[in-house]
Simulated scan of single mutants.
Amino acid sequence: MTRDQVANPVGVTGGTTAPRQEHEELPTTPLTPAQAFDALYAFCAPALVRQTFLLTGRRELARESVERAFQLAWQRWPEVAVDRDPAGWVRIMAYEYALSPWHRFRPRHHRPEAPVTDPSARALMAVLLKLPPSQRRTLLLYDGVGLDLPETAAETEASTPATAYRLMNARATIAARLPDLADPSDLHDRLTLLASTERLRAAQPPAVRTGSERRARYWTRAAIAFTVALIGTTALTLRTAPTHYEPPVPPGAEIQGVPPRVGRGPLSEAETKLREKLRESAAKGPERLVPLGR
């Protein structure tokens, strides 16, 4: 990834890289991966945080989504660096994370968010957050970021007619509640103004790279520990498992005609005398072996 590719990434604002003049010299020294990542982050992250805030209405979630997207980009940097639109790649990851339904189970998601100070911007934000997530994302990409309809459809993984339908419904909902924004150009200007009025700061690029590497090490160790535990469990199972088939013991069946077993009763008088006599006799000695004479 060269310096020109980082300076004007395609897809950030819908524009393309400006054509080169013939007398300009091409750079000969390529950027290192860390320098290219930092340049892409510095160029895209501030605007992407503001876009994600319009998408979610939550400032901390917007910063977290962008940071997580760039952490994934750093983990897959060989893939992202050669992508035709690295900024679009990061934007897709940030939007997907921000719109994840799992955030509703987080305690922080239930805390009230500080409203926007401007009353008109607050009204627009309220209407945006009432739109379905698919319509909100389509509207933001088309009327906010400035992508065309096929690019918006490709990024939202929908067909072009479905994307157009979502866009028209979103515009109709906003026009019904805010008639002064019925014109798409006015809506674009108001979205840009709403995003620019919020002071949202992104983390520094080295901190994002360090966090990405830390998460990668954590998940690598977790995968190794899980693999070791799985191997140990499999070995223990193979060692303790039976080597042949043992049929189950059938339940007992009652036999008819056999008298029930009863316990012995009390000793008779003769048996009691015999027991006392045996107890008084010596337990060992010749008198136990030689019979007594008569």
Rank of each mutant, 00 (worst) to 15 (best):
P115W: 00
P107I: 02
L55A: 11
P115E: 07
R137Q: 11
T138Y: 03
A81I: 00
A123R: 13
R106H: 15
L54Q: 15
A62D: 07
A153I: 09
R104I: 08
P112S: 06
R91T: 11
P133Y: 08
T152W: 06
F53K: 00
L147E: 08
A158C: 10
L131P: 08
A158M: 14
E157C: 08
P150A: 13
R84Q: 08
A98W: 05
F53T: 06
E64R: 10
S134W: 00
V82F: 09
S120E: 13
L147C: 03
S120I: 02
Y142N: 00
A158H: 11
A126V: 01
E64M: 05
W102D: 14
A121I: 10
D148K: 01
P107E: 01
T52D: 14
A81N: 01
H103F: 03
W74G: 01
A154S: 06
R136D: 02
R63E: 00
L55G: 06
L140Q: 02
V82L: 12
E64K: 09
A98N: 05
A153T: 05
F105Q: 14
Q71I: 04
G144P: 01
L128V: 07
Y97K: 06
R104E: 15
A126H: 04
L139E: 00
P132K: 04
V127R: 14
E155N: 07
V82S: 14
E113D: 13
L124I: 03
V80Y: 06
P78L: 09
V80Q: 05
R63G: 09
Q75S: 09
L128I: 04
A154T: 04
G146W: 08
V127F: 07
S65R: 02
P107G: 04
R122E: 15
V66S: 10
R68N: 11
S65Q: 07
E157H: 12
W102I: 11
E113F: 02
Q51E: 15
M93I: 00
V127Q: 15
R68A: 12
V80F: 02
R59A: 07
M125C: 08
R104A: 15
E79S: 10
L55Q: 12
P86N: 08
M93G: 05
P101D: 15
R104L: 12
F70D: 09
G144L: 05
E67S: 13
T138R: 10
L55N: 04
A62I: 05
S159E: 14
Q135E: 13
Y95F: 05
G144M: 04
A154W: 04
F105A: 13
E60R: 09
Q135S: 14
I92S: 12
A114Q: 08
I92D: 12
E151C: 03
W102G: 06
R136S: 00
L147Y: 13
Q71L: 11
L131N: 06
E96T: 06
G88A: 07
K130Y: 00
P119M: 09
Q135M: 09
L139C: 00
P119W: 05
A62M: 11
S100W: 03
P86H: 02
F70R: 03
A158Q: 11
E60T: 12
A87I: 01
G146C: 12
M125P: 09
F105L: 13
R59M: 04
V116Q: 12
E155V: 07
L131H: 07
Q71C: 12
A73T: 14
S65K: 01
D148R: 02
R91A: 15
Y97V: 09
R122K: 14
D148Y: 05
P161L: 10
P119S: 11
